[in-house]
C-alpha cells in the first residue's frame, strides 16, 4: 500500500512539474467539443440530442491521446526496467501508474465536462448521469488503455497503432455511458446502466493490470 502511494506520488509530481501535458489533454477535449457545433449547426435541439455522444466520444479520444506518455518516458529512460526488478508485485505499481494517469488526465476532463455540457444544451436532468458515467467509465478506459500503451512500447508508429488496438475495446463503455445519459435526459432510470459500468470497471480492475504487466515484461526483456 505504501509502495502504491509512492508510485502515485512520483507520477503526480512528474506530471505537475511538466504541467502542460495534462492541460493539453483538457485543451484537446474542450477544443474538439467546441468544433462540433460548427460541424453540426447551432440548433439547440440537435445539440441537445447529440451532446452525450459528442462529450463521450471526445473524452474517449482525449484519454487515448494521453496514453502514450503513461509508460513511454519510463521505457526510454530505463526506469521501467528498475520497476520490474523491485520486489513489489508489478501489478501494484501498474495500478499506481494508472491511478496517477487518471488523476492527471481524466479528472481535469471531469471538471470541464459540466461546462461543455452547458454549451451543448445537455438536458439538465442528465448532468448528474453524465458526471456519474464519466466517474465510472474513465477509469475503465485508463485501465484498458494502459494495456494498449504497454503493448506498443518500442513499436513503429506506436501512437496510431494504439488507437487501432484499443478503440474497439472501448465500445462497451461508450454504449452504456451514452445510454445512461440519454435515459436520464428522457427521465428514465439510469440505475441499470451505472451498475453495468461499475461491473465493467470491476472486471477491468484485476484483468487489465495482469495483461499490462505481461506486456511490460515482454517489452523490457
Amino acid at each position: 500500500m505504501n509502495r502504491l502511494a509512492t508510485v502515485i506520488l512520483r507520477d503526480l509530481r512528474l506530471a505537475l512539474r511538466q504541467g502542460s501535458d495534462s492541460l493539453m489533454v483538457v485543451g484537446f477535449f474542450v477544443l474538439t467539443v467546441t468544433l462540433f457545433p460548427f460541424g453540426l449547426g447551432p440548433e439547440s435541439n440537435l445539440l441537445e440530442r447529440t451532446a452525450a455522444g459528442i462529450l463521450w466520444v471526445t473524452a474517449l479520444l482525449a484519454s487515448m491521446l494521453s496514453l502514450d506518455r503513461l509508460f513511454q518516458g519510463d521505457y526510454e529512460d530505463g526506469s521501467l526496467e528498475l520497476l520490474t526488478l523491485t520486489p513489489t508485485a508489478l501489478e501494484i505499481l501498474v495500478i499506481g501508474k494508472i491511478a496517477a494517469h487518471w488523476l492527471t488526465t481524466a479528472l481535469p476532463m471531469l471538471l470541464a465536462a459540466p461546462v461543455l455540457a452547458l454549451l451543448l444544451h445537455l438536458h439538465e436532468d442528465a448532468f448528474l448521469a453524465l458526471m456519474l458515467t464519466l466517474l465510472l467509465g474513465t477509469p475503465t478506459l485508463s485501465l484498458i488503455g494502459a494495456m494498449g500503451a504497454a503493448l506498443v512500447l518500442g513499436a513503429r508508429r506506436g501512437g496510431v497503432l494504439l488507437s487501432l488496438l484499443i478503440l474497439p475495446l472501448y465500445v462497451p463503455v461508450l454504449i452504456f455511458s451514452v445510454g445512461a445519459v440519454d435515459a436520464a435526459a428522457q427521465g428514465l432510470p439510469v440505475h441499470g446502466h451505472l451498475l453495468i459500468l461499475g461491473g465493467l470497471l470491476l472486471a477491468a480492475l484485476p484483468l487489465a493490470p495482469l495483461a499490462t504487466v505481461a506486456a511490460l515484461r515482454q517489452a523490457v526483456e
Binding site: M147, L151, V152, G154, A155, R156, R157, G158, L161, L164, L165, P168, L169, L207, A211, A214, A215, Q218, A219
Partner: peptide
Amino acid sequence: GHMALLNAFDDAARGARAAAILALA
C-alpha cells in the same frame, strides 16, 4: 489491430508475443 501489432516490431518474436496478449484480451 492484431495484424498491425504483429508487424509493428522489428523483432518478429516481440510482435508475436504482444499480439498474443492482445488476442487474449
